[in-house]
Simulated scan of single mutants.
Amino acid sequence: MFRENVEALYCTLLGNIPVILWGPPGVGKTATVSYLAKTLGWHLEVVIGATRDRTDFGGFPVARDGSVDLVPMPWVKRLIEAGERSILFLDELSSVPEDVRPALLRVINERCAGDVYLPGRIVAAANPGNVAVGGLDLEPPIANRLLHLEWTLEPKEWALGMREGFDTLYPPLPDPKPFAHEVEWAREMVALYVERNPLHAYMAPKGEEAGKAWPSYRTWDMAARALGVARALGFKEGVQTTLVVGAVGRTGYSFMTFLQELDLPDPREVMKNPSLLPSRDDRTYATLMAVASTTAGEWNAEAWRAAWRVIGYAAEMGKADLAVPAAGRLLRALAQAREERKPSFPVPKEAERFLPLLNKVAEMRR
């Protein structure tokens, strides 16, 4: 579990997803954030919310030339100097005084401290209520802006760290990779799931659960982004599930089961052999989108031609309507490649049959 949590936290940092680590004192929350900051070569700024007041997050008011400026605190200036390669670690978040939380909410939600934009990542940590000093439940507006990770350290993991050094508990982490195309695929899967399960789109809980992860339009978007990053980095299903559940709560298990039941083939194998394209409509659609995302990510002539062969095969199966979004995805990738002066490939004949459908979709969206 500890290794999966480290990998999940790594994904949130690369994906720029605000995250909170829940766990009792002494289980390695702060140490892990410090380790990842060092691994990435990023600046780490630790702020203990329980010892701060509103001016620490909202800025100190100073009168100048007939107006009032909100002067940022030194920790804000250090983060600005570090730029995007920085982490703001908000420790003891659940112990922040109630009158300070509105200013802190703006830091988390808008990345602003007073009048200053904070360019880096945000990680928070909190102790469970039964062990937190002055601990309070998080208000739903704060909780719903964070991905929640339950942080634990098993006795056998601690014993291993004692014997061999605690750095040995950290798994080897892949280098950062582009993840935009995998995120787009994940968004499609989330949209497909929510369309089939509309009651799961927004489920505001009551009581203590409102201070943890729960489904909303914001957190589903967060889940898709986290899932896409994890897939791009090659992390296994356990990490993917940890991230999705951390974003939308227990409903995330239902979504991950939905993905498992789709039982999608490897898009690269389908590109080699289009006859592997599933016949069931939802599986067809999901596989076609995976083929388009894979092609956009790899972006070479061979993948481009193979993707269109798959789309042409789908049309021959009488599923041209399901292939339209994938065809549009490929054409958008081509336009983007031309703008970025990447290699450009000719539009094949298979694309011609989709142009009228794509034009109709564009007209409907106007």
Rank of each mutant, 00 (worst) to 15 (best):
M364F: 09
M73T: 11
P274G: 11
T39I: 04
K360V: 13
S94A: 13
V46E: 14
E316A: 14
L104Q: 02
G234T: 07
V71T: 13
E208H: 15
V62I: 15
D99F: 09
E154W: 09
L9H: 00
L199D: 15
L227F: 03
A307L: 04
T294P: 02
P74Q: 05
R332V: 14
A232W: 06
R231Y: 03
G114H: 01
P215T: 05
L331G: 00
L118M: 04
L355H: 01
D53K: 01
M222T: 14
W185H: 10
L104C: 01
A8T: 09
P25T: 07
A204F: 08
Q240M: 10
V310G: 00
E298I: 08
A292E: 03
W220R: 01
M364N: 09
E208G: 07
P198N: 06
A50P: 00
P205H: 02
T284C: 13
V123T: 07
E350V: 02
V27R: 09
P265V: 08
K77S: 14
L264N: 05
Y202V: 14
S95A: 14
I142L: 15
T241P: 00
D321E: 15
S293M: 10
R283H: 11
N127P: 12
I122Y: 00
A143K: 09
V27D: 10
W185V: 07
R309Q: 12
P140Q: 07
C11W: 05
D137E: 15
A37S: 06
A333C: 08
E139G: 07
F166R: 00
K212M: 13
P346I: 11
V116A: 06
E154D: 13
D266G: 02
Y35I: 08
L105M: 11
G66D: 09
S34L: 12
M162L: 15
G161W: 07
L88K: 02
V361F: 03
R309D: 12
F255Y: 12
F258N: 11
R280S: 13
T294H: 06
F89V: 13
W304A: 05
G234Y: 08
P18T: 01
A213S: 06
E98L: 11
T32Y: 03
M317T: 06
M162D: 10
